[in-house]
Design a protein around this nucleic acid. Structure first.
Length: 258
DNA sequence: ATGGCTGAGCTACTCAGA
C-alpha cells in the first residue's frame, strides 16, 4: 500500500498538478494539507472520476486537510483535539493493512511565527493537546500512522542553515523537544529511521530562488508507531512536483507499507 | 536575512504561510 502526504497549498489552485501526480505516482491513499477551501467547494468529482473517495475537513481560505483514498476508510473523525481557534488541522480514519487495523492521522500543525505573538503560544498548546491525545489513543490501538506538515525541523541537519531557524517557530528547541516527546511515546520519524544521515527537504520557499539554491527544510513527516515499523517497505521524498509549473511550496513524501 | 512569492477573498488590499 502506497500512502502519500502532501501539503498542496490550495487544492483548487493545484488540481491539475495533483491529478497528474496521482497518474504517475499511483497512491492508494493521499493525505493532503492546506487545501484552503471549505467542504462544499472541495473538488470531490475530480477524485471520484479516477476512483478515489474524499474525506474532507475544510476551512475557508486557510488550513484544511483531506484523505483521498482508493481503499475504504472507516470511522473518519475531525475532532481529534479541541482546537481553541476552531481551525481545520486534523482528520483521522482507520484502514486495514494485512490484518492490522491502523489509525491514520493527517495533521497540519500550526506554523507558530512570529514567536513573540499568540501564534507561537497557539502552536505550543496545540502540540501539547495533540501529544496528550495520542497518548490516550495508544491505549486503544497501538498501530498508529501520523503524517502531514508538522512545521517542525526535527534536527539541525534538516534545514539548509540551522542558525537562521534556531529562533524560529519551526526550529526552536522548545518545539523540537515536543517532537521528541511525541516520538518518545513509541514512534519513529520514519524518513530518519530509514535514512540515518541523508539530507533531503520537503519544503522550499517560493521567493529568493530558494528551490534553485536548495534552501529547503524537512518539515513534512511520517511518524509511525513502533509496532508497525516492520511493515515499512520504503519511504521517499519525491522532488519532481516541486519543479513543475505552478508548484506547491511543499513536495510529497511517499511511504510504501505492507 | 527578511518577507523580494503565492493563494484566497474579493475587486484593493490584507492576511497567512515558514
Amino acid at each position: 500500500m502506497k500512502i502519500i502526504s502532501w501539503n498542496v497549498n490550495s487544492v483548487r489552485a493545484r488540481i491539475t498538478n495533483i491529478l497528474d501526480y496521482i497518474q504517475t505516482s499511483k497512491p492508494d491513499i493521499l493525505l493532503l494539507q492546506e487545501i484552503k477551501t471549505q467542504d462544499e467547494s472541495f473538488p470531490y468529482e475530480d477524485f471520484k472520476k479516477i476512483g478515489f473517495e474524499s474525506h474532507v475537513n475544510g476551512q475557508k481560505s486557510y488550513n484544511g486537510v483531506a484523505i483521498i483514498s482508493k481503499v475504504k476508510v472507516a470511522n473518519v473523525k475531525k475532532n481529534f483535539i479541541n482546537d481553541e481557534l476552531k481551525q481545520s488541522r486534523i482528520i483521522k480514519g482507520e484502514i486495514h493493512i494485512n490484518k492490522k487495523k491502523i489509525n491514520i492521522i493527517n495533521v497540519y500543525v500550526p506554523n507558530g511565527n512570529p514567536i513573540e505573538t499568540e501564534k507561537y503560544d497557539y502552536k505550543k498548546k496545540w502540540l501539547d493537546k495533540f501529544i496528550l491525545n495520542i497518548k490516550k489513543e495508544l491505549d486503544k490501538n497501538s498501530n498508529i500512522l501520523i503524517a502531514g506538515d508538522f512545521n517542525i525541523i526535527p534536527e539541525e541537519n534538516d534545514v539548509y542553515d540551522f542558525k537562521r531557524y534556531e529562533n524560529d517557530a519551526l526550529g526552536k528547541l522548545e518545539i523540537r523537544k515536543k517532537f521528541r516527546e511525541l516520538l518518545n511515546l513509541g514512534f519513529k520519524d520514519t524518513y530518519r529511521f530509514i535514512n540515518k544521515n541523508k539530507v533531503e527537504y520537503t519544503f522550499w520557499d517560493y521567493f529568493a530562488g530558494s528551490w534553485q539554491k536548495n534552501y529547503g527544510m524537512r518539515i513534512d513527516h511520517f511518524i509511525l508507531s513502533n509496532n508497525i515499523l516492520e511493515n515499512i517497505k520504503s519511504i521517499n521524498i519525491n522532488k519532481k512536483p516541486r519543479s513543475k509549473t505552478k508548484p506547491s511550496d511543499h513536495t510529497p513524501i511517499e511511504l510504501i507499507i505492507n
